[in-house]
Design a protein around this nucleic acid. Sequence first.
DNA 1: CGAGCCGTTGAGGGGATTCAAGCTCAGTGG
DNA 2: CCACTGAGCTTGAATCCCCTCAACGGCTCG
Lengths: 241, 241
Amino acid sequence: MLMKTTPLYRQDDGHPQARVCLGCTVRSTALFGALDPVGLDRIHTNIASPALPAEHTIYRRGHPGQAVYTIRSGLVRFERVTESGDRRVVRLAGRGDLIGQEAFLRAAYEDDALACTPVELCRIPVTLLDDLGEEQRNLLRELMRRWQLALEAATRWSAELRAGPSRQRLLRLLVVLQRHVNEHGQIWLPTRELMGDMLDITEETASRIVSQLRREGVLRDTRLGHARLDAQAMAQALAAG
Amino acid sequence: MLMKTTPLYRQDDGHPQARVCLGCTVRSTALFGALDPVGLDRIHTNIASPALPAEHTIYRRGHPGQAVYTIRSGLVRFERVTESGDRRVVRLAGRGDLIGQEAFLRAAYEDDALACTPVELCRIPVTLLDDLGEEQRNLLRELMRRWQLALEAATRWSAELRAGPSRQRLLRLLVVLQRHVNEHGQIWLPTRELMGDMLDITEETASRIVSQLRREGVLRDTRLGHARLDAQAMAQALAAG
DNA sequence: CGAGCCGTTGAGGGGATTCAAGCTCAGTGG
DNA sequence: CCACTGAGCTTGAATCCCCTCAACGGCTCG
């Protein structure tokens, strides 16, 4: 019988996954921040930390979910396709957010989830949540908090990005994207077509507005799907209506 | 010491609230359907069953919530007001739905909740949920299921009612309203202005489309905020695009 | 019976779409 | 090395859907 005085995950030379979990940059804000030490001891063995390229499909709507995911880095979008075949983007999720929570209820995923940028995830099998939930009361509470966050995000998307003149929608989209700014201070700038599916406008209209914002100095260094936002000009554009 | 062989709530002549709970028409589908008999024994004393008239405000955004509500009958809408002062309706909830769940997390309500029609509610203090949650594992699971339902409703609202030509939006709104048809087979028909705030169109546009649908026979008996839907004509209108 | 709200309809204008033509740029292969 | 290609982006012109502004009718209610 092997005696352990300190749990594996606190040793740098422990289980390979333990090192990943220990070094996880979102551990304090993520779902498992609610776990006590005993709970933490259990988790690392079953968790994968996949890194996926941009545009990779994380999961598909209708698929029976067997895992929920924490986003360690990157940006994820949720989309679905209407009967008539149009794509509709319904919200975004970023660093620290939990996605695919419906899997925990043994329900199929509600939307397609796709990587906007390269993403690093933390894959949590639902069976692991089941086991932990049995004794970790805080975890269930934290899980519900995540649900509320997702609900709020969906509601805001509907209220702010799907109403009003297209210029205002695009400006508000930029505000959302600015919240997910990367380490170089630049935002992810979707293709014009994708902007259209987010805001329910055409790609031509999106392109015209982006061009205009660039001329106004709101957007700078727009290339390769990235851009920089001028805070000053942005505030001015928002205030002008 | 009084000995009770059967719990109060199962006697027709018990606690006044017990009779209400016992006769509740949504008990099997509502949140407390997850409770075992021991749990049920506890709930009825603290629960109020207010009946409110149409247009009554159930709660307000930003208010610290102390209760969640089950809708026993009627229709409820969630709305918020933008910085520029426009109202945006973000989703509906009906019979059997749970609303104001964010209160359970000690968070302020996210939206204004208003009665579309006269409503009967079941008011559940969050402290009661706390106590029950301590021992009723099923209740927490059921609570999360409600959150997922709300999330799905918000997502669909965004994808279906906030995109495409205004005629299609209005038709899809009617589909939603038809799901909440009352005992007389009629749907609640919002004012044209409210339709506008739901679909992000003007009241004039809403009025024009409603008039046209009436001429096409899709809508019948439109008066006093109610109407009847012709299933045949409706299907035809939807298919035509 | 006048006031006010809701609903309806018309006329005109504007913003977004549609249709179309080039543009840039990265990747490919002769 | 550079024409070729295709995807994404941009811009223009014409059209159309929806908004704006306006007038009016029905209804309830004080």
